[in-house]
Amino acid sequence: MGMTDHGPSMPGAPHLFHFDNLSILPDELSGVKILPGVEANITNHEGELDMPLKYLAYLKLILVGLHPICYPGGTCEQNTQAYIKAMENPYTDMMVHPGRPDFEMDLEKIAHASALLNIPVEVNNSSLSTIREKGGARENCRSIARYMAKYKGPVILGSDAHFWDRVGEFSEAVELVREVGISQQQILNTSPERVLDYLTSRRKHRTEFEETQGQVHRFA
């Protein structure tokens, strides 16, 4: 189970104390593996996040995305740059809902960067759902999915439920990845083991980064 509340720049999001307190959680509860984390918000065109590195250093699942209110918006080039720079952050594990229409982006560049960096990009079921349909979201999702199939970068399927009865609802996302030809090998969350192995590899990458840059607390 991943626990990824929005980062603190989102109105109504938990205070940083919440993320600090996640460090007390055990690795497993009642046979369920626990992944305390965050859905961090990109805050500027340089792809900076709203979470200090001292928190990112011990969280186990770091999702990153663009959200209105938290990000000022910009041109297509600026928004694309912000998204890709956040993807290059060694603390980023996965990028979320690139198909949302709030900010225009070059979706082909994002898919290409995902393949080069081996950072999964989400196919977001909520963005495809008629329940929460927003103008342009479905077509954007189809576009990014086609580019992900073309460049063969890693993909994560997400329900982005926002309500308990839609947790784990992937039907429209599964339909889309089949439609555009994304292979099963590209989809990270086809098993718990693949997700955990990937996160272990990201922690190794993060450790190597910290060793070259000095202790993480120097950035906090």
Rank of each mutant, 00 (worst) to 15 (best):
M3C: 10
D5P: 15
H6F: 04
S9F: 02
P11T: 00
P11D: 01
A13K: 06
P14E: 06
H18E: 11
I24D: 12
L25I: 09
P26F: 04
P26D: 07
P26R: 07
E28S: 15
L29W: 11
I34L: 14
L35R: 11
P36F: 04
E39D: 10
N41W: 01
D50W: 05
L53W: 13
K54A: 09
K54D: 12
Y55H: 15
L56C: 13
A57L: 07
I62E: 03
L66D: 05
C70N: 08
C76W: 08
N79F: 02
Q81V: 07
Q81M: 14
I84G: 02
K85S: 11
K85L: 14
M87Y: 01
M87R: 00
N89K: 08
Y91V: 10
D93H: 13
M95I: 12
V96G: 12
D102T: 02
F103S: 01
M105D: 01
D106Q: 08
D106V: 04
E108T: 07
K109H: 10
I110P: 02
I110R: 00
A111P: 00
L116C: 12
N118M: 09
I119M: 08
V121M: 06
E122K: 00
N124H: 05
N124Y: 00
I131V: 14
R132A: 06
E133G: 09
E133L: 12
E133D: 14
G136V: 06
R138E: 07
C141L: 05
S143P: 01
I144D: 00
A149P: 03
P154L: 09
G158S: 09
D160S: 03
H162M: 03
D165P: 11
V174P: 05
V174A: 10
L176A: 03
V177E: 04
R178Y: 11
R178T: 10
G181V: 08
I182W: 15
S183L: 10
Q186I: 11
L188G: 04
L188K: 04
T190H: 13
P192R: 11
P192D: 12
E193C: 08
D197I: 14
D197L: 15
L199E: 08
T200G: 11
K204A: 14
R206Q: 09
F209V: 11
E210R: 03
E210S: 05
E211D: 13
Q213Y: 07
Q215T: 14
V216S: 03
H217D: 14
H217V: 14
F219M: 11
